[in-house]
Design a protein around this nucleic acid. Sequence first.
RNA 1: GCCACGGUGGAGAAAUCGGUAAACUCAGCAGACUUAAAAUCUGCCGGCCACCAGGCCUUGCGGGUUCAAGUCCCGCCCGUGGUACCA
Length: 863
Amino acid sequence: MQEKYLASEIERAAQNYWDTARSFYVNENSNKPKYYCLSMLPYPSGKLHMGHVRNYTIGDVISRHYRMRGFNVLQPMGWDAFGLPAENAAMQNNVPPAKWTYDNIAYMKHQLQSLGFALDWKRELATCDPEYYRWNQWFFLRMLEKGIAYKKTQIVNWDPVDQTVLANEQVIEGRGWRTGALVEKRELPGYYLAITKYADELLGALDDLPGWPERVKAMQANWIGRSTGVRFAFPYRIDGLASDKLWVYTTRADTLMGVTFCAVAAEHPLAAHAASHNPTLAEFIAECKRGSVMEADMATMEKKGMPTGLHVLHPITGAQIDVWVGNYVLMSYGDGAVMGVPAHDERDFAFAKKYGLPIKQVVAVENLEFSTDAWQEWYADKAAGRCVDSGKYDGLDSSAAIAAIAEDLRSMQLGEPQVHYRLRDWGVSRQRYWGCPIPLVHCETCGTVPVPDADLPVVLPQDCVPDGSGNPLAKREDFVNCSCPRCGKPARRETDTMDTFVDSSWYYARYCTPGADAMVDARTNYWMPVDQYIGGIEHAILHLLYSRFWTKAMRDLGLVSYDEPFKNLLTQGMVLNHIFSRRNAKGSIEYFAPEEVELKHDDGGRVLSAVAKRDGEPVEYGGVGTMSKSKRNGVDPQSLIEQYGADTARFFMMFAAPPEQTLEWSDTGVEGAFRFLRRVWAMGHQIQSSGIVAQLPATLSADLAATRREVHLLLRQANYDLTRFQFNTVASATMKMLNAIEKAPAGEGRGAVMTECFSILIRVLSPITPHICHALWCDLGYGDDVLAASWPEPVEAALKQDEETLVLQVNGKVRGSITVKVGAAKQTIEQVALDSEVAQKFLVGTSAKKVVVVPGRLVNIVV
RNA sequence: GCCACGGUGGAGAAAUCGGUAAACUCAGCAGACUUAAAAUCUGCCGGCCACCAGGCCUUGCGGGUUCAAGUCCCGCCCGUGGUACCA
């Protein structure tokens, strides 16, 4: 073996070995237990960034560890290849998204391979491949048949200059990112998937996912947002309107007697009716329709309203209630109308104060004074209050009042209790080119007709170049023009494509069944569910909820036999980097990569200002944020790999922080990871040249026994840390092992202790830095392939010790230590502590009030 | 705004059950080796007080529970992720 650590040579050799031996190609014919380890598939943005390296190294460490523990491990990889960035790149470089995407895939695949991940590449898939997305189309048609997919209108961000739909990401401060034009809300028809039909199951099944982080389950539960309340109506009679009821939903029916107004969404029929002969109101409604559709914008904007001049009747008292239009009422949520109870709802309170609407208290809490001057938390407290000034409901508590009022509404046929979800159905239509075509045909005679299964896939043309003004598919006559599958007459193809979350909702199942001429086949039931799923915390809600929904829909269509796709979930923390941007003259935003920017710091190291190196003009510092193509703040690991090797990059990534924690990028410390690997190599060389000693002598000197004990203790700790995926401390355990081996004292058996301890070190380190460990394992003659080695376990005999040291505290402060026999009785320990010189010093003129003994840890004397 | 998570030395971090705060590493400082540099090795490295012995303080801020709090409870501040068309 070479004396010097030559990373690139070692890595090439190890990768060649794995390729030749087909080490990571797996199948279902194994007598080992299966283990499906899956990392979220990357978007092929051009180059890997540090977030990818982190994600895939975590997955690889888990995969290799489980493999050495005797599992049949599947670890596949693929490409989330449809999406917006390809269209943006196309506009910038005049390259078709298809070419850009496939070029990126080729480059990034090469990068992944150079990192030495234990991937089964024969299962690779790209979601932009017609052989993949045909099954999106096929399944969409099945959902259409089952009524899970349906059509209704959706509200989108509209750029009036580019005449195009904008993604939320493309709306910055209410303006289109390219044009700077004020964004408008526009209604378009679109297809929805009825995820709300599964809301109860999606919520309930969270309890059956003990391997998911609590925080993710909490977020999903809140997102689904099940509530029980009452849906009821305010009756009205308004000339020119056929309907005679204004429906609302509330969880606080107990405050119904405090209603002083109603508010409807700008798109509500009552608003439209009132506006038809009220230009001021029409103008206000138009104003409500300006701005983006984002929830964060809706929630933070100033709450505004305008009276419609219409009124409805209180369902119980019959009193006239004014109807307002409110910019904060969402048509897409419930019935697009809400009751206003200013006394007991904080938002209604602010609204009433602003417009001088009456505030009527109907819930009181003993000893607390209600005042309309300022909002107080208890006004909305469901638990403490009782009804007042509410007629026959006076004195009832919240739940009794809700029950009584719901019953009265029911008897009047004006409402009933209802379970409500915050979750909305999943709108999947996108007015974009680079996505999976929705397999429908529009015929003047037959209406909307599904493309027959035999004609799937509807293939997306590969050579379009978007220009930012709408979907180029609509201009492609050869795509759009077709004949109706039903009547044969000329017809037009649907040009909307599917949300890319469709692509990623079932790819994990397709990995299991490469080459199947169905969506999936029986092999999926061998591998699924995924035993360990690893991906960014940013997917905690949407991707993970859609995948769970999709799995249940596939199950209900008889395609798979499992209920949940991901048994265990590890949510990786984001890798963050600094963000710099500038708004140009047109009002659009340009981002600068950190290396394109020069920083000025204050004395404390805080960023004061930044200028672009290119032109010396100032750029705005946007703080830190997740590495992304669009913000141009990704760091390419390539130079790291070239300079130090894949093992150093992998080790450093694992060492830097625990997987779930957010990581602010900095490359200081990479050098240290490299130094460590060089020392590991040097130790291997030293052991090899001084001769490998397999047999430990019958007895060891106390010093050597201590070295051996330390390494076995570290092994015990590392094994524990592996079970909880805390790889940073596994990495530091291997560093501590090396420190101990290097300091191994002279004496009989030194070679044997070093040989044994180093074999432990290599195996524990091998999932993190597989190349160097592969080389050392072979070169030192431990075996042919470290992948086939058994995972090390600490040896009890090596851990044994006769005495232990306990911390001695007086009044909770550390004052010294005592040494006792292992397993000594509490009374004995107490006596040793009290007799100690340190304790005696503190006991002069007083006595111990209490002595707390924590076995194996400490003694605390309270005086 | 709302939901979730986080905040520990100059930096990344560790501390498994409420039991020695800062393991391991980076940066820095001092030294050894060297003609020199690189590499390597050794020592120091939270703050204040002290001649030493040692003492006091310190886990974003303010309170609380406890023999004992980074860890548990209450109230704030700041940061990150998500917020349904970024993926």
